[in-house]
């Protein structure tokens, strides 16, 4: 149990560091379009245990988001997206619940629920997170085209890196 908690805390710290030290520096210029955000940190929130209290999850997301925002120098932007992701997680989990229900101790990971289920879940969560994040970052629907393009490319790149992480570590 303590082991598990330590593992989750370790994962949160590891992903925060990965995000702010490595993925923040990554730039993929695509012509003049240089605004691809690779967001791997939602993975830590997405894969916390299913039975974790919702309020606690939202608070963890808030703390983690603030940490990342401090490094990004964009107070509130990542936080709002991550808090939203943490909030919506329970509803997406309800939506995707397998026929037998979830194992009490399970986390929503590939380890517990299989590759197909996990990719579906991950794609929905990352898409929601990215759209929310980009909307907050652009902050006006006047640039709806920019929001859509940024969201699509950020989603693809984030998914690639998260899946890479998944295959490298296959965490519980």
């Amino acid at each position: 149990m303590t082991n598990d908690i330590l593992r989750y805390i370790g994962r949160i710290i590891l992903l925060t560091l990965l995000q702010v030290l490595i993925f923040k520096q990554l730039h993929f210029p695509l012509g003049t379009f240089n605004y691809i955000h690779v967001l791997v940190y939602p993975y830590a929130i997405i894969t916390l245990p299913i039975r974790i209290p919702r309020n606690l999850l939202i608070l963890i997301a808030f703390a983690m988001g603030m940490t990342i925002d401090v490094f990004y120098n964009s107070i509130g932007v990542h936080t709002s997206a991550l808090v939203f992701t943490a909030f919506i997680r329970a509803h997406i989990l309800n939506m995707l619940e397998p026929r037998g229900g979830y194992n009490v101790n399970a986390s929503p990971t590939r380890y517990y629920l299989g590759m197909n289920w996990f990719i579906r879940y991950l794609a929905i969560m990352i898409a929601l997170h990215v759209v929310f994040y980009v909307s907050m970052e652009v902050f006006t629907f006047v640039y709806i085209q920019e929001i859509i393009l940024k969201s699509i490319f950020s989603f693809i790149f984030s998914m690639v890196f998260i899946l890479l992480y998944q295959f490298l570590f296959n965490p519980k």
């Binding site: 919702r54 309020n55 999850l57 939202i58 608070l59 808030f62 988001g65 964009s74 107070i75 509130g76 932007v77 936080t79 709002s80 808090v83 939203f84 943490a86 909030f87 329970a90 907050m136 902050f139």
Partner: peptide, 22 residues
């Protein structure tokens, strides 16, 4: 408390922070 309220509360706080500091 219902998690929607903590969510809404924190989002409002985030909004305030975004507008205040960006």
């Amino acid at each position: 408390i219902p998690h929607f309220f903590s969510f809404a509360l924190l989002e409002l706080l985030c909004f305030y922070l975004i507008i205040q500091y960006n």
